[in-house]
Simulated scan of single mutants.
Amino acid sequence: MRKIYSLALGLIASVVFAQDGAPATPYYNGFNFNQSGMALKNALSTKITTTHINELSYSPGVWNALKVTDQDPDNPGFVLLLYGFSESVCPAGSSNDDDHRRRNANNNGGDPNCEWNREHVYPQSLGTPDLGQEGAGADAHHLRACDVDRNGQRGNKLYTTGSGNSGNSGSGWYPGDEWKGDVARILMYMYLRYPNQCVPTNAVMGNTVTSDPNMPAILLQWNAEDPVSEYEDNRNIYLNNANNAWGQGNRNPFIDNPYLATLIWGGPVAQDRWGINATDSFFEAKLTVYPNPAANNEINIYSETNLEEIQLINLNGQLIQQIQKPKAVNNTYQLQNLPDGFYILKMTSGGQSAAKKIIVN
């Protein structure tokens, strides 16, 4: 047992060290990133709400903001259009141009002939209450430049699975391979910023994660599969600066680091831009334990490889629980009825082991 105890102490040190990754931006100075699960969700929600000091008007404020924030990094003077994919140039007077990827920034309005307008990524009518044209309805982190026709085609259809370019998918709407990560990070931001008004399940089809019935699992998948682009970074940086003409003062933390979503909700391991999950083990990199601290004395383990054994070890080195050949549902294992305390959760697969410190309270 002493050997296990020594191992446990070493594992605690390594897990704590792995949480030492930190963002470069001073926006997060003093923020406690030694949190996960709902504690981290609530702390980030408070952060992005209290720093949102400039409320934009829907018109002209959002129009002017999008002309700056949505500029194509490779084509100054043009805005990128959400859901768009064609690289051809919009012909003057053409009405058959709804698949285009960019527009002249000054061609904004409601005309389907080569103009763009404001897409509510979270549909305006699906908010509880309706988002309107102020507050959530005028939050520039949420609104994106979009072709007029394509915006109308999407309407208020719920997002759903698909592949390739954007378009209808069954009765829902697939945002496209290029844009699905953007959409996921925007909807997660809106959930934290307006937690009662912008519940993700009201805008997205599909199963939800075990730890949060409001979070569709597909958003975590999209967040992991589509990494952050320079375009998203540029938007985030501009809107964060409250001294900019159309800056709000707050940021979308899931653009800063998509892995924050993994820490909160679990699911596929997303891009970790701060090295929070620094590890040399491929097996460990594909593991997520959530929520942590545990909720309702339950812990979930998401693993992209089949686990052969799970051990729960207390800080005295005692083996509290051991499960061999555990069964998973959608790559997720669940431990229930855990006693309160601090533990090391040791998982084994294919001759490799990984450990996570967990708290049950």
Rank of each mutant, 00 (worst) to 15 (best):
F17V: 15
A24M: 06
T50K: 11
H52A: 12
N54L: 05
E55P: 02
Y58H: 12
S59A: 09
A65E: 10
T69W: 01
D70G: 04
N75I: 01
G77N: 09
L80Y: 02
G84K: 04
V89K: 11
P91H: 10
A92V: 15
S95G: 02
D97V: 14
R101F: 06
R102Q: 08
R103F: 01
R103H: 11
N104T: 11
E115V: 00
H120E: 10
Y122W: 14
P129L: 12
A138F: 06
R144A: 11
D147I: 00
L158Q: 02
T161R: 05
G162R: 08
N165W: 05
N165F: 07
G167I: 07
N168P: 03
P175M: 04
P175R: 03
W179S: 02
G181Y: 00
M188P: 03
R193A: 15
N196Y: 11
V199K: 11
V204F: 02
N207P: 04
N207L: 02
T208R: 15
V209S: 03
S211C: 13
S211L: 01
N214Y: 08
M215F: 04
L219F: 07
E225S: 12
D233S: 10
D233V: 14
N241Q: 10
A245E: 13
N250I: 00
N257R: 10
T262Y: 04
T262V: 10
V269T: 14
Q271W: 05
Q271I: 01
W274C: 00
T279V: 05
S281W: 11
A285C: 00
L287M: 14
P291A: 03
I310C: 11
Q318C: 07
Y333H: 05
L335V: 02
F342G: 03
I344C: 07
M347L: 15
T348S: 13
S349I: 13
S349E: 06
K356T: 08
K356Y: 10
I359V: 15
